[in-house]
Design a protein around this nucleic acid. Sequence first.
DNA 1: CCAAAAGTGTTGAAGTTACACCCATGC
DNA 2: GCATGGGTGTAACTTCAACACTTTTGG
Lengths: 247, 247
Amino acid sequence: MDSKNRHELNPRVSADCVIFGFDLNQIKVLLIEREAINGVEQSMALPGDLIFEGENLDTAASRVLYELTGLDEIYLEQVGAFGDPNRLNNPKDQLWLKAVRQNPTERVITIGFFSLVNMNNYEPQPSSFAKSAAWIPLEDIDELAFDHMEILKASFAKLQHKIRIQPIGFNLLPHKFTLSQLHKLYEVILGRELDKRNFRRKMLKLNLVQSLEERQAGVPHKPSQYFVFNEEKYNELILHGFDNFGF
Amino acid sequence: MDSKNRHELNPRVSADCVIFGFDLNQIKVLLIEREAINGVEQSMALPGDLIFEGENLDTAASRVLYELTGLDEIYLEQVGAFGDPNRLNNPKDQLWLKAVRQNPTERVITIGFFSLVNMNNYEPQPSSFAKSAAWIPLEDIDELAFDHMEILKASFAKLQHKIRIQPIGFNLLPHKFTLSQLHKLYEVILGRELDKRNFRRKMLKLNLVQSLEERQAGVPHKPSQYFVFNEEKYNELILHGFDNFGF
DNA sequence: CCAAAAGTGTTGAAGTTACACCCATGC
DNA sequence: GCATGGGTGTAACTTCAACACTTTTGG
């Protein structure tokens, strides 16, 4: 490509990120609140941006994530390209694009990503920029700008599928966690109850977690043991064709 | 988007198709042979094209498939977007692009698809156009133009994964087939032997195939029974959360 | 002592793997 | 009658699903 363009925006291609978090009770998504335009309220939107000419697609997604949250080295996975020619043509969305884009009617293909973050590592600042971000419970989201609802649904479907095959859920948890927290995480992602004993048995058999001496303190019930994720074991399992968590 | 542009090409986005076939013995891929440029031989390439401004991504992929093979209503699945800024910058590839593209140095993001076809429905015509197509055994392919090798690998990995979850393999077979052919298909896609008796038992238990009265004729061994794919049963299984073929 | 969540084993059913021989046909 | 691939059953093992009570803590 033309080297003169490397730091210019590519007006035809963007990256949008579905950022999942887990507050130990439910799945949340980090969304952008946008100012009303001419008095018309705007739906929330996924964080995203046009890519730079010299930029990889996943670098662009990482950049969006970093610029919003300051977080780096985050689990990120491409979900696919979304390119309906009419994806930006909703009148409300057009209002907004006219306010912020040089050429608001240009067709843009977006590449959707999802990422998994430990919510504790990012607390949205009230209106830190013009646009402010908020963690919204997944189940409360029923409308988003553009085709972002479609991207969100595809992302969550991929997460649901992938968590059964690879232990990516650990990216949503703090460094130390209890088995109950992990259990709850699997239940909310898969959308169904999992038998507590069977869950623990399977998880421990996989050796993906190792227990610490430390226990919970200050809880009004039997304190739970803390665990950490065993990365070496994970890498070993990946090599040997680990592909079934059993759920 | 600007309606004036609907029938123009979008110079920044293309669709490339990995077209898989199965000759009852091995997996083949339909590749494009390209003329040498200035005496420099060109690697084979995946069929693909820039998209039109008014065109959906999967419509563009279908169009590529249709223009090449005349086939319609083919199993097609998006694999993802491939957008390395240097993906077109190999000198040999640049030679070719200079010969065929208006702006050969423009960055192009491509959306990769794979499709599954019944090879009997398309016999490449020797040089039917300037460019001719050929079915190449998957295992013989070790070099392709641009980043097409990467797209091929991602596509095959997705095929391998998906065939364990959904019975998409039927798209590679003739309308009537034998269980041995189906068995062989699974073996070559998964890359390992599967026990004949266990395979048949599982497949029959799923009720995804139903036997015809008809048997093979003219074979120098016990003639095999023909089966057809049971689409109603498939749709029923999809609804009820069918997600494990058991391999 | 009460409420709350942590933690723990067993059993029956289902599914998976491994394995060897007879059958029908063309030549 | 021989070569070729088609077609079949069983037994040992592993995995999965279902299920209830005791423990530890804070208040």
